[in-house]
Simulated scan of single mutants.
Amino acid sequence: MAVRQAWERLIVRAQLKDLRFHDLRHEAISRFFEYGLSTPEVSLISGHRDLRMLARYTHLRPADIAKKLRSISS
């Protein structure tokens, strides 16, 4: 209950009406993918057992994939 109350106070102070605690999890998992962690690595961190659910957090951008491929071939 203390965590929930602290979260609610934080939301009021920051004037963020639409932010949910789950949004932070989504952001963190998305960042792990951006940093180049593999799906099994992110799954281990996040606790996802179903890779289809974890795939919802991947926001692949063609430019990022091209950059990654260039770094491999260099």
Rank of each mutant, 00 (worst) to 15 (best):
K68C: 00
M53G: 06
L10T: 10
R49P: 06
G47K: 00
D23H: 08
D50G: 05
F33N: 05
S38P: 01
A28T: 11
L16W: 14
L37E: 07
L16F: 11
I72R: 06
L10M: 11
R70W: 07
D23I: 08
H48D: 07
K67Y: 00
L60F: 03
V3W: 01
F32Q: 15
S46F: 04
R9P: 00
H26V: 04
R56W: 04
V42R: 00
K17Y: 06
I65D: 00
L51F: 12
Q15L: 09
D18E: 15
D23E: 06
R70A: 12
I11S: 11
R4M: 02
D64L: 09
S71F: 02
K68V: 00
V42S: 04
L69A: 09
P62E: 11
D23Y: 03
D50S: 08
G47S: 08
V42I: 10
H22P: 03
L19M: 10
R31K: 12
L16H: 07
T58V: 13
T58G: 03
Q5H: 11
L10Q: 05
S30K: 04
S46H: 02
Y57M: 12
M1G: 13
R56E: 14
Y35F: 10
S38A: 12
A66S: 02
S38M: 01
I29L: 15
I65Y: 08
R70L: 11
E34C: 04
K68I: 00
A6L: 08
D50R: 09
K17T: 11
L24W: 10
M1D: 09
K17H: 09
R25G: 13
A55D: 12
L10V: 09
R61W: 03
S38Y: 07
K68D: 08
I72W: 10
I65F: 05
G36W: 00
H26C: 09
M53I: 13
E27H: 06
H48I: 07
L10W: 11
L69Q: 03
L54G: 01
P62V: 05
A2F: 01
I45H: 02
A28E: 03
K67M: 08
R49T: 14
